[in-house]
Structure formats: C-alpha cells, structure tokens
C-alpha cells in the first residue's frame, strides 16, 4: 500500500488526518490556503464591526458587540494555530495577507454605514459563515475540524445578536426600519456570494471534495442558507432585494435570481470599496506593534 493509498483509505473511513501524517502536497497546500484565508477573514472581519463599537447605542449593545468582535480575534487565533500545524508560521501567513498574496472573505470589503449593519453582519454574514462552518466540522484535517467545533460552539450567539439588532430596528421607528432595509439591501447579495462561485465554476472544489476538506458544495450550502433566511426576513417585515426569489414547490427550495459575479471577482481582486482600507489598517497596527513585540521578545530572552 502506497502512502497515497493509506491516506485515501483514511479519508474514506472518516479517519482524521493529523499534522504528522503523510499527506499529498496538494492537500497540504490547499489546506494552508483555505485555513489561512479563513483565519484572515476572522481577523479582517473585526474591522467592519469594530467600526461601531465606540458608537453602539446602548451599553448592552456595546458589550455584546465588543465580546463578539473579540471572539473573532479568538477564532482567527484558533485558525492560525491550526494552520501552523501545516508547517508554516503565523508570521508568514500574516505577511501573505499584507502582501495580498492571500485572500480573505470578500464580504469584509464592504463598509458598515449604519447601526443596522451590525444586525445585517451578524444575521446574514455570520449566518452564512456558520452554515459553512457547521459543515466544516466534519472536514478531514483534524486540527481544522477541531477548531471548527470550538468556533461553532462559540459562534452560536453571534447570529442571534445580529438578528436581535436588525429585528428591533425593523420593528422600530420609520427611520430605524429604513436603516434596517438599507442594510439588508446592501448585504444580501454579498452574503449569498460568500459561499463562492457555482459548483461548475469552482476550479478547486473537485480536489477539496475528494480529499474530504469540503463536505458540501458551494451551491448546496448557499441553498441551505437562503432557505432558512427567507422566513426570518419575512417575520420582521424586511424585503429580500431579489425579485426572482420564490418558493419552488417541486424542489422544496427557494429559487433565486442571478448573482453578479463580475462584481464579486472585482472585489476579490482588490477593487472593492474597502480593500485598501482593510489591508492598510492591518499593516498599520502590525507596524505600530512591532516595537512592542521586539521589546517583549528581548525581555523574555533575558528573563526566562
């Protein structure tokens, strides 16, 4: 039995692959890319929500939002930590993010412009992320799967707090309702595009499914998300900005309109409204923290 056979046998028997096990180079590279992208998304994702912490409208809202954004830092850390087991250090991953060699979820390149956006981000963006992450709890790489289990457990409050914010506004004053609908309009399409291109257009999906990294396809996950979200929107009187959205009695799923993939790819490739701001913010904090890290390292060398 070759190493590859042994590896595939483990995958087929749902035995997790662990850091010191033999794995095909493509598997390692795919995971390094996907896991670091996932980690970067958590960390960059702190910015659009962090944007509202100092302006939260109540003390309760403030601590909830702060705790949530803090969780994202924690989840970024769990994911970097899992990705480091693949033989690449966090410093290298960070360098790849800052040099734009690595990507992060494109949704975070959109600005958060009113308080309802905190609702939309929690409800729709985290909602979409959770659908994906629940599925990834069964991924074949042990450290990744374990990080996902921990993340899913902690994220359970994230979507609920978002829905709470947006429902209070949707059911509030006319001004609040308008903000809620505006947030919905801006975040709906980017949220459903978070699942990535259609299966037939997704170049790397094949290997990822074969290797058990991806368990469900982009389109299946997207459908799952849309199906559960429509009723939640209706309940609070928000309109999903898609005139083609309707229930299909035959498939027992919602049909929905065409997504604008040109916009998607242009944002992925750097031309979104906040791409430069997000990366520059990250670089600035990183550079301003350099003397602190150097001091801490110097002190530890002298005193440990």
């Amino acid at each position: 039995m070759t190493d590859l056979d042994k590896f595939l046998e483990k995958i087929n028997n749902n035995i997790k692959i662990e850091p010191k096990d033999w794995m095909p180079d493509g598997y390692r590279k795919h995971l390094q890319r996907q896991m670091s992208q996932h980690a970067h998304s958590e960390v960059i994702g702190m910015q659009p929500e962090g944007n509202w912490i100092t302006r939260a409208p109540s003390l309760r809202a403030k601590v909830i939002l702060l705790a949530k954004v803090q969780d994202e830092a924690g989840h970024g850390q769990y994911l970097y930590s899992a990705a480091e087991t693949l033989g690449k250090s966090r410093a290298v991953y960070i360098e790849e993010l800052q040099s734009r060699k690595a990507k992060y979820s494109s949704i975070f390149n959109y600005p958060t412009l009113n308080w309802a956006d905190m609702g939309a981000v929690g409800w729709l963006v985290d909602g979409a992320a959770i659908v994906n992450q629940v599925s990834l709890q069964k991924t074949s790489y042990g450290p990744y799967a374990r990080a996902m289990v921990k993340i899913c457990k902690e994220e359970s409050f994230h979507q609920r707090q978002g829905y709470e914010i947006i429902s209070k506004m949707a059911l509030g004053s006319p001004e609040q309702k308008e903000m809620a609908q505006d947030a919905m309009n801006r975040f709906w399409w980017p949220s459903i595009m978070m699942f990535g291109p259609h299966d037939q257009d997704s170049a790397r999906s094949g290997d990822a499914m074969k290797w058990g990294i991806k368990i469900e396809s982009n389109d299946d996950l997207r459908q799952k998300f849309i199906d559960k979200t429509v009723a939640q929107a209706e309940l609070i009187g928000l309109t999903i900005p898609d005139k083609d959205l309707k229930w299909n009695e035959e498939t027992k799923h919602y049909d929905f309109g065409a997504m604008d993939w040109d916009e998607f790819w242009s944002v992925v490739n750097g031309d979104g409204p906040c791409n430069d701001d997000r990366i520059n913010h990250h670089i600035k904090a990183h550079e301003e923290g350099r003397w602190v890290r150097e001091a801490a390292n110097a002190y530890a060398e002298k005193n440990n």
Binding site: Q47, L66, V69, G76, Q77, A285, E288, V292
Partner: peptide, 13 residues
C-alpha cells in the same frame, strides 16, 4: 475598546 483590531498581537488585542 478603541484598541480593538489594533493590538500589537492577536493575543494582546
């Protein structure tokens, strides 16, 4: 709270 996302390291953030 203004430090959020600006810490010198994730752990310190």
């Amino acid at each position: 709270a203004e430090w959020c996302s600006k810490g010198p390291m994730l752990e310190e953030d």
